[in-house]
Simulated assay, not measured.
Amino acid sequence: MTRDFLPYGRHTIEEDDIEAVVDVMRNGLLTAGPKAAEFEKAFASQVGAKEAVVVSNGTTALHLAVIVAGIERDDIVVVPAVTFLSTANVVEMVGGKVVFADVNPETGLMTLDNLKDAIARVDGSVKAVMPVHLTGHSEGMAEIYAYAKEQGIKIITDCCHALGAEYSDRGKPGDGKYEDFACYSLHPVKSIAMGEGGVVTTNDLKAAQMMRLIRSHDMHRDEESFQHSDMALDVSGQANPWYYEMHKLGYNYRATDMQCALGISQLKKLESFVEKRRKLADFYDDALSSIGNFVKPNDRSKDCLSAWHLYAVQIDFEVVGKSRATVMRKLSEQSIGTQVHYIPVSSQPYYRERYGMQNLPGAEEYYSKTLSLPLFPQMEEADVKRVVDTLHKVLTV
């Protein structure tokens, strides 16, 4: 690639993507037009779900899923400690209670044993669990799903890293095989970009219809749903053309037609984007194998063919005698961007104050060693070699 600086992630926007957005700006409705429905149909087909509901970003997708799943005040939801803030925050937003699960220290993923341990700490019944497909991988979803269903627990998967991933047995994350709802982010560093954008997939038509209402202030315009006929109807008994009703609290979580036009164009390229990410991951695996056992890629799950949203490695910073901050700064000086995914959410001041200090050794170990290296479709094998060679030099000199 031609750019000197390699960020940890970057979108790929091409002329046909730009033209798709410009066409809407020139000829279509900027919002509340036909592009949302068109994008939803294409996204559902891509994932293998019956329904897809597009919203403004990944957090609003998670929030809608939690609402429609029936999570209410004081309901208990299990969330892996290693995830982005929003996975836990949306539970708090509806008044629920978060119980943090530990993770496998080699992958950052919640296992069935981690889930069972979290439930054993609960004083009360668990309403839902939110597995996170961290870095585009998943682990033990069949076992987690079977156990959760036995316990009457709903499953909301955080698939924000997983668009384009595939299960090794059959299907894809978000197709409804192992979840009631799946939530995606279409932020610029994700598998495809909408600027900002999010999607919830489900096989529950009624739930999808509810989400489409809630994303637009729960405004009902169909005559059959009207509850106040004295206001809805004119003197002849016909519905007033301007009339609408709000039956419950809703939000402005709509995506614009410009975003959806970009999403439609990008979705056509998903397969090629993911194929390139997988090749780059293979290049990293080969290059890292020769630089020492103080750096290793995350363990691979046998259950999933990753979409490789991120390429995360584990570095034994104690062994190399350098702090992670020092390594990141020195890499940045060589025009290589890195990031940490993630600080355990359970350690955030808000959650420490709310639930106290958590003993989650797997999450702490994973966090202490993880570092995300540059990975995005515009990179080439030479870029991977440059990253690995520079990392090796920074760690050993």
Rank of each mutant, 00 (worst) to 15 (best):
R3L: 03
Y8P: 15
R10C: 13
E14K: 14
D16P: 04
D17G: 11
E19L: 14
V22N: 12
M25F: 08
R26D: 12
P34D: 14
A37W: 01
F39G: 08
A49Y: 00
V54D: 01
S56I: 15
N57V: 03
N57A: 07
L62V: 01
A69V: 02
I76K: 15
V77T: 02
S86T: 11
A88F: 00
N89W: 05
V90I: 05
G96R: 14
V98G: 04
V98C: 10
V103R: 13
N104F: 14
L112R: 10
N114Q: 08
L115W: 03
I119D: 03
A120D: 13
K127L: 05
T135P: 02
G136M: 07
E139L: 12
Y145F: 09
Y145H: 11
I156T: 02
T157K: 00
C159Y: 00
K172Q: 10
K172F: 01
D175E: 02
E179Y: 00
F181K: 08
H187P: 10
V189S: 13
S191I: 03
A193T: 15
M194I: 08
G198L: 10
G198F: 04
V199D: 01
T201L: 00
A208T: 01
L213Q: 05
S216K: 07
Q227T: 14
S229V: 09
D234E: 10
D234N: 15
G237M: 11
A239T: 09
W242F: 13
Y243M: 05
H247N: 15
K248G: 06
R254C: 10
R254Y: 11
M258N: 11
S265I: 06
Q266V: 06
L270R: 07
S272W: 04
K276L: 04
R278S: 06
A281Y: 05
A281R: 04
D282I: 05
I291T: 06
F294L: 06
K296A: 10
D299I: 05
K302G: 07
C304I: 13
L305H: 15
W308E: 06
W308R: 08
A312P: 14
V313H: 12
I315K: 07
I315S: 11
E318D: 04
V319L: 03
G321F: 01
S323D: 11
R324F: 03
T326F: 05
R329G: 05
Q334V: 11
G337D: 03
Q339N: 14
Q339P: 00
H341L: 04
P344Q: 13
P344K: 12
V345M: 14
Y351F: 15
Y351W: 12
Y355E: 03
Y355N: 08
Y355S: 02
P361Y: 01
S368P: 11
K369A: 14
L373S: 04
P374N: 06
P377W: 08
E380M: 09
E381C: 09
T390N: 04
T390V: 09
L395A: 01
